[in-house]
């Protein structure tokens, strides 16, 4: 229990520190001007709206849409490359530790209430985030363009609850002219935000599971990111404690690098045998002879033991 609390607190402090650091332009909250220094060219790893008054960096999904929608480019090497680097190094560790909207959902889920372990149609809804990525982040900004060839950030405009929470609400509170301009679109975005925040109380991270296009990108890279989880088959008794503890619905004893695993560490805390470890270590096709500590038992990425469907 003490270890579980320790990992939870460690993760919580990292989440709070990173959210504060990436939104640390305090002056932005007092004057209606966004930070416009060179740092804002840099994409942050998580979904962090650049319309937030304190934002010091750029949201990678917003940046991707703005470059794709720009008539001069139509392809964003810079943002895709940044996402590849984060994905190759960390995978969905970003979701678990570095995303401010993930932190908000985590905190809301702490509110005591009856919890929904598995949403209806969960298995199918998990694919929705890939559709959102393909349609709203890639296809529409590229092809639904105006007369001068400029596209809109469709995901930011119609879906992103992080933008409403971190950008929309603070900006509306600070500017009367913006409040007067708010219409149907703002009401629609508030509806999405409130629906997701309410759902977060009962179901763990509904936005990350079903809608987040950034989560979809990192899910693809999770299988081979350098940060990995390992299972020591010699210690594992297949008691199922890891699967029961996972709020993302992953069975760690079946697959250690599942696309839905956000590396929160709950399974590590729950394992009574200490069979699950994590870190920037090698796992694939290990013969077990590389170090005295290595079990060599982790299944290779293409082994039949791997199950890529949410359990």
């Amino acid at each position: 229990m003490r270890m579980k609390r320790g990992i939870y607190r460690f993760r919580l402090w990292i989440q709070i520190a990173f959210a504060a650091l990436s939104n640390g332009y305090v002056a932005g909250f007092f004057k209606t001007r966004l930070y416009s220094g060179a740092l804002k060219q840099v994409c942050l790893p998580g979904l962090n709206c650049y319309a937030c008054p304190g934002a010091l960096g750029s949201c990678p999904i917003g940046a991707l849409q703005s470059v794709l929608g720009d008539r001069n480019f139509k392809m964003s090497f810079y943002v895709l490359g940044t996402l590849m680097i984060f994905g190759a190094l960390l995978g969905r560790l970003v979701c678990g530790f570095l995303c401010p909207f993930g932190l908000v959902q985590d905190l809301l889920h702490k509110i005591p209430s009856k919890k929904i372990q598995r949403m209806p149609l969960d298995r199918w809804l998990r694919w929705l985030k890939y559709v959102v990525l393909a349609v709203f982040v890639l296809w529409l900004p590229l092809f639904a363009v105006n007369i001068v060839g400029q596209g809109s950030p469709w995901f930011c405009k119609w879906i992103c609850p992080s933008g409403t929470l971190m950008g929309g609400i603070p900006q509306m509170l600070m500017s009367e002219s913006l409040r007067e301009s708010a219409g149907f679109l703002f009401s629609w975005k508030m509806f999405i935000l409130l629906a997701l925040l309410t759902l977060s109380v009962f179901s763990y991270r509904p936005f990350c599971k079903y809608l987040c296009p950034l989560g979809a990108i990192y899910a693809v890279t999770n299988r081979f990111s350098l940060f990995r989880f390992q299972l020591d088959e010699r210690k594992c008794t297949h008691c199922g404690a890891c699967a029961r503890s996972c709020k993302m619905g992953v069975n760690m004893s079946k697959t250690q690098n599942h696309p839905e695993c956000i590396r929160c560490g709950d399974c590590q805390s729950a394992c009574p045998e200490g069979a699950i470890s994590s870190g920037f270590t090698h796992t694939t096709r290990c013969s077990g002879q590389c170090s005295p500590q290595c079990s060599g038992a982790s299944p290779a990425p293409d082994s039949p033991a791997r199950d890529h469907s949410p359990d």
């Binding site: 966004l34 804002k40 930011c156 950008g167 929309g168 703002f186």
Partner: peptide
Amino acid sequence: EPMTVLRKAATLCLECIGIG
């Protein structure tokens, strides 16, 4: 490309905040 990102990020994104 970073300049395009900066141009967008340094000005208030009306779509992001729900003005359109």
